[in-house]
Design a binder for these strands. Sequence first.
DNA 1: GTCTATATTACGATAGAC
DNA 2: GTCTATCGTAATATAGAC
Lengths: 197, 197
Amino acid sequence: MARKTGSNGEKTARDLRRAATSLFARHGYAAVSMRQIAQAIGVQAGALYLYTPDKQSLLADLMATHMTELLDAWQAEADAGAAPEDRLEQFVRFHIGFHAGRPDEVFIAYMELRNLEPDNLALLQKQRRAYEDVLEDILKSGVAAGRFDIPDTRLATMALIAMLTGVTTWFRSGGRLTLEEIEETYLSMVRGAVGLT
Amino acid sequence: MARKTGSNGEKTARDLRRAATSLFARHGYAAVSMRQIAQAIGVQAGALYLYTPDKQSLLADLMATHMTELLDAWQAEADAGAAPEDRLEQFVRFHIGFHAGRPDEVFIAYMELRNLEPDNLALLQKQRRAYEDVLEDILKSGVAAGRFDIPDTRLATMALIAMLTGVTTWFRSGGRLTLEEIEETYLSMVRGAVGLT
DNA sequence: GTCTATATTACGATAGAC
DNA sequence: GTCTATCGTAATATAGAC
């Protein structure tokens, strides 16, 4: 009971982020008004400005938070000492699992880059690049160990991330395939694509 | 000289489509105003309504035209009688080549679905599905012929199209790699992913 | 912390002159 | 075919009461 009666700030702050994430993903940042967000959480539009200095900062914060969580989650479970093929498998499972559980955040992180102002865009591109480098490092180590057959690790990185991230555009929990089945299929395609026998 | 002096309608109509395509791709449909489009082609905002009944129709028309051109272009060069692995190669080269030459249209076709009104969305999803079926038919024929090793052709279709379309997000003519080099690399990754030896 | 009220600006679309 | 002018609406953001 850290908060006073009638004071709802922390809950409203959480609701705001959740509502904005959902609305931005569904309709796009530019198409969503502050009034819509306010209505979704049951406050007046003016009250939103207690929690964010402006609409742009809200978008930038949602995107940066998502990328930070992504990078932290990987750091927490990565095993840098494992063999390249095992690290690749771990990455594929991690990427699909993490992204499938956050379809709205992923959608925003990929679709709303163009609505970020320059400073915010620069930060996000740095974070994306750091995540791409995670996979590229794995591919490089596999090539160095003679386990992977990849002419250009940068190109393969972009290709594989695009393939894996695409899952979020059509995956729905409870659909035709379980996440485990999808992971298996994608893993075998990724293995084939990098030339693992 | 089919047109009268001082009459510029056909050129303006072309300019309108080109400017709208560029602006929608760069900033997003919802973020672009009719005034911006008008300014880009040097007319007043009101004049745009001589060429489109409204902003939504303009978007829907651009997207449907792109998909129609994509499907027609494939029909014009597809060789349905060839062996599965040859048809797959042809599709990969076609897809990369066609999409790399139209980055703005591709961007819009994938990003602005959520801004289409229901009737327009239904048409576009039908067209997308038809294009996805092109690849899935190839994969199915390869599986039937014992040439491809694919547990789920629908899943593989979505994965491969996501991978191939991703090229447009970073490919720039004159960059580090030529389109031919990219085609070769992607082709070898696709071959591996479908289990072609 | 949330409210009402409002300043300011911009939007999509239309009317009618030329 | 394009213009100017404008209607009606809605946007972001702020001010100040409670």
